[in-house]
Write a protein that binds this DNA or RNA. Structure first.
Lengths: 332, 332
DNA sequence: GTGAAAGCGCTAACAA
DNA sequence: TTGTTAGCGCTTTCAC
């Protein structure tokens, strides 16, 4: 492989001049610059980014720790993050945390070992005790995504509370009083916040949460299907359901279908998270859609700012959701 | 940050001993090893992978060039690849090619600059003229994924031809004779092969392809929707449709729905690619499902073998699809 | 405007 | 069994 030294020799200059031409880091005589450029062209030289990173102390690399790339939501998030980074000349390294602190710790360690310039983490439950302190100790800029945690760093996620609240209120407005809820994975903020939104909506109308109407779907399609099946098999089943994320919505739909119930006549349904096929489904799903693009782009923006040395109070940004009013709620 | 030198000093040994303890590359007296390990423990030392890569000439990094991370299919593929790599101690760098050779070239260049040990590419149309030669010239091990190309390197993708053929035959068996097809992006092998499967099925029954029944969905939901809408608005519209990938299936469904037609009574439908929600949809979709896990794992396996110096005839592996017989085809 | 030279932190001969 | 040393290919001071 051609090295910078080779290019320098061919152009009859020193390696440092080649470096400066490449980086534009100091004035170079036009004639010499041309010679260097010709030598680069001729040899097809490309600089070795690893050596560059070692010498310069910056890798132009950002790590992302996330779970369940299979979930289209996270897939889109990765996509959004990748695009924003690549626009800024950075490259993305992904690791899957499987929503488990130990894997997460392994992923972030590996990212730190690779000297990433910054890190974006969708924290697993327990992350604030294990992974995140470890990351901040190294001084690596860190932005949390999707879920928030009680720790001082930039965080960006969807609006959870008021979105879940609105979804629930909508059912209340339609006259429902026994509203079931499918709750997500314990220990992550989005679960808590969305559930709190549900609770708050009920409270406004003087209804207290009936524990029998709360099922734990653990953010999983299969678990949600099983739990909803059980819930909806009971004689005193709810007249409406709020599903608090996309995977669980699929499980909920499967359960309802397998019981032979129909939506919305037997049970009304509103969902946190939208699908590309939401309005293909019969009935079309009423849902709160996250703005994944904005979440990803914002996270990258905050991170790059930190990488560039910006030093200010950490921010917590909530990106609003969009309410898609369709038919599964039982409206005309 | 602690370096290997610091650890060595604390343990009272040389840096090379520390290196060998870490890598297990030569025998070290138990007592010294213990001292080194203690020093590592005490300092929380982690080795700088960038320096290691520069010195050793291997980065333990694999690059992936892929398009449309948004598509759940590719999301799952990335996931499968990431998992297999991480099991082998490698790390994944992703780049989005946007299914465009120029972006693809930029992505692969950037990956090569980062000295990836190997590369997995889902080639864009035209890749064999631009990107791939560039990669092979560097000697970097390369595996093609999802789409095949006429070039000598390992390739792994789904079974396209016979799967599309079976889907089409199924419609023929049900008595359909005017069968429309929604074809994917031009210039990529999966499109050609799937379309050839459709053609072959018709040919077997002595039917020649009617160009009026072929629409180009360009592997895009929106384009497919528009084109299918047009096709199905015609008086002599087909009685059945074959959609050749997941994105176009969604477009097809939207079009059919917007025209007020029902499946399968007005038009039967079979699809290449399955969805997690395929059997939630009414009618449940008859589809050929790819085995993304196996595709990803196989690609990684082939690549690692090359990285380890395996030198044999390039292989082309086709992973079979699974036929999910449901109701959109019009069967009971 | 340009070059020499000292690292960046590690690996891997080579020596002992 | 262990240490010494010469790089890996680049950036960046410092001196000219």
């Amino acid at each position: 492989m051609t090295t910078m030294g080779d290019v320098a020799r061919i152009a009859g200059v020193s390696a440092s001049t080649v470096s400066h031409v490449l980086n534009g880091t100091r004035k170079v005589d036009t004639a010499t610059r041309l010679r260097v450029e010709a030598a680069i062209e001729q040899t097809g030289y490309r600089r070795n980014v690893v050596a560059r990173a070692l010498a310069a102390g910056r890798t132009h690399t950002v790590g992302l720790s996330i779970s369940a790339l299979t979930n289209p939501y996270f897939g889109s998030l990765v996509h959004a993050v990748e695009r924003a980074l690549s626009d800024a000349g950075y490259v993305l390294i992904v690791g899957d945390s499987h929503d488990d602190v130990d894997s997460e710790r392994r992923v972030t360690d590996s990212l730190l070992d690779r000297q990433v310039d910054g890190m974006i983490v969708a924290p697993a439950a327990g992350s604030e005790r294990v992974t995140l302190p470890q990351v901040t100790r190294t001084g690596t800029p860190l932005v949390l995504i999707d879920r928030c945690v009680d720790i001082a760093c930039d965080q960006v996620g969807p609006e959870n509370f008021s979105s879940a609240q609105s979804l629930t209120e909508h059912l209340l407005d339609l006259g429902h009083r026994r509203i079931g809820v499918v709750r997500g994975l314990a220990g992550i903020s989005s679960t808590t916040e969305r559930f709190d939104g549900y609770t708050a909506a009920l409270a406004e109308r003087g209804i207290t949460v009936d524990a029998d109407l709360v099922v734990d779907g653990q953010s999983s399609t299969d678990v949600a299907e099983r739990e909803v099946c059980e819930l909806m098999s009971r004689a005193d089943r709810p007249t409406a359901l709020v599903s608090l994320n996309n995977a669980m919505t699929i499980g909920t739909l499967k359960a309802v279908r397998s019981l032979g119930l129909s939506i919305p006549s037997d049970v009304a349904l509103v969902c946190y998270d939208d699908f590309e096929w939401s309005d293909l489904f019969e009935p079309k799903l009423t849902a709160a859609a996250q703005d994944v693009e904005t979440i990803g782009a914002t996270a990258v923006e905050l991170l790059l700012r930190r990488i560039r040395g910006h030093d200010a109070e950490p921010q917590r940004i909530r990106v609003p959701t969009t309410f898609h009013h369709r038919h599964s709620c039982g409206c005309a």
